Structures are given as structure tokens and as C-alpha cells.
Amino acid sequence: MELIGILIIILGFALKLDTIAVVVSAGVVTGFVANMSIVEILSTLGDAFVANRTTCLFMLTLPVIGLCERYGLKAKAVMLIEKAKGLSTGILLSGYEFIRQVTIAMGVTLGGHPQFVRPLISPMAESAAIVKYGKLDEKDIDKIKAHSALADNIGNFFGQNLFMASAGILLIAGTLETLGITVDPMALSKASIPVAIIAFVLCVGKNLLLDKQLSKKYNSKNKNLGGNK
């Protein structure tokens, strides 16, 4: 019964309810099931919040990004890409994915979707396609946005365990230690290298496939328009 909180979280997320309300409700219900008093439940929730309050610091960057966008950050990124006419969307995203994976492997976090992908990478990827093919369909713009998010996700997810002091590595080592199994964090990071390389290669292949699809579609469309003229 103590695991009922997990069920509440799964149902809440599946029904797309408010995230904070779902998590707090799951914690309160779990506390009652575990025969905790309301004071103990609130004290536990408060201690957990205070202990992990630094995880909310990233929210301070959001107003800064908003101001940068308002005063031309996205426009400058687009202008930069327009000057590099030979740069394709797939090559740009592959380059970003490589940088994301290498930097996170060294323990440096670039930011993620709100701080980096939305204001910079996604507009640059769209502009690279627009420069080559002209106006894009809304469906293809959404596809480019999805590939931009994918490059960030793959680079971050598969690159973070290459850093021996990352949260994922420490969690694995700590969990196994409680089970009586001693694991060297460096050995875990080395074991993650082949997976990171495979993920990078697959992501690059997907980006190049996107280039091929866009080229085939719009070159054919532009050719037909030229023939009709």
C-alpha cells in the first residue's frame, strides 16, 4: 500500500493534471498510508523542499532568456545562419548534438530546451532549411523543431553518464552500495562510452535523413513550379 503514491503520480500525469498538485497529493496519501501524522507529513515535505531548493534555480534563467528574445537574440541567430549558406539543418543539429554530448560529459550543462533549444537551436535549424528551400510547410517546421529537441535530449541523456560525478552515476553507485555491491564510478562512466557513441551515430543518421527528406520534397516542388512557369 505504501506504493500507492506511485500509482497516483502515474494516473495524474496520464490525465495531464497539475504536476505539483499530483506530486504533493501522492506524498500526502503515502504518508497517511504509512501511518504518519499530518504534522510528520508536512515536516517531511518541508524538509525535502528545503534540501532540494537549489533545483529550482534554473527558473531564474527564464526571464533572462525572455528579455534576450525580446531584444533580438532569435533574429541574430537567424541572421548568422543565413550567412552560412552551405550549412544544412541536419549538419547543424548534428554539430549541436556533438557539442551537447561533449560538454555534458565534462560536467558542463548548456541549459536545455528553454534556455538553448527554443531561442537559438530551433530557429537556426529552421533558417538553415529556409535558406536552402524557401518557404516550408508547417508540418516540416514542426518536424525540425522535434529534431532540435531530439538532438538536445540525446546529447544530454547519453552524455551525462560519461561524467563520473554526474547525478546518474552517483545514483547508480549509491544504490548498488546499499545492496552491498561496490562499484567504481569511473568504471560506470567507461561502460557508458559505447552507448553514447551509438546514440550519437544514430542521431546523426536521423538528422541526415531529415536533410534528405527535405531536399527530395522541396527540390521536387521547386522543379515542378519552375516547369509550370
Rank of each mutant, 00 (worst) to 15 (best):
S189N: 14
D142W: 00
P123R: 03
S43M: 10
S127R: 05
G134P: 05
S166T: 01
N224D: 13
A48Q: 12
A199Q: 09
E177L: 05
D18W: 03
T44E: 15
K143I: 02
G226T: 12
Q213H: 14
I154H: 06
K212R: 14
L225K: 15
S215H: 14
A75C: 00
I38D: 14
Y218Q: 12
S25K: 10
D140H: 08
K145I: 02
L60H: 11
T19F: 09
L60Y: 09
I41T: 03
L62D: 07
K143A: 07
A75E: 05
I41K: 02
K190C: 07
A125I: 00
L225P: 12
A146W: 01
I65R: 06
G72P: 05
N224R: 11
T30W: 11
G205L: 07
G134T: 00
F58I: 08
I193E: 11
K206Y: 02
S88A: 09
F163Q: 11
K217M: 12
E97K: 09
S192L: 04
A199T: 08
G12K: 12
Y71G: 06
K206I: 01
G112Q: 15
R118H: 03
V117L: 01
G111H: 12
S189H: 11
A173W: 09
L162N: 12
L150F: 01
L80H: 00
N161G: 10
F200I: 02
I198L: 09
F158E: 15
K223E: 14
M36A: 05
L210F: 03
L170V: 03
D184N: 15
E82Y: 02
V78L: 00
T109H: 15
F13Y: 06
T54K: 13
I197K: 07
P63Y: 02
K135G: 02
G180M: 07
K216Y: 04
F163W: 13
I172C: 12
I169G: 07
D47H: 03
S192N: 14
L15K: 13
A128W: 01
L45R: 06
D18L: 02
L170A: 09
T44P: 07
I144V: 03
N219R: 03
A191V: 02
L210C: 01
K145D: 09
V50W: 14
K16G: 03
I65P: 04
K221I: 07
G205M: 09
S215V: 04
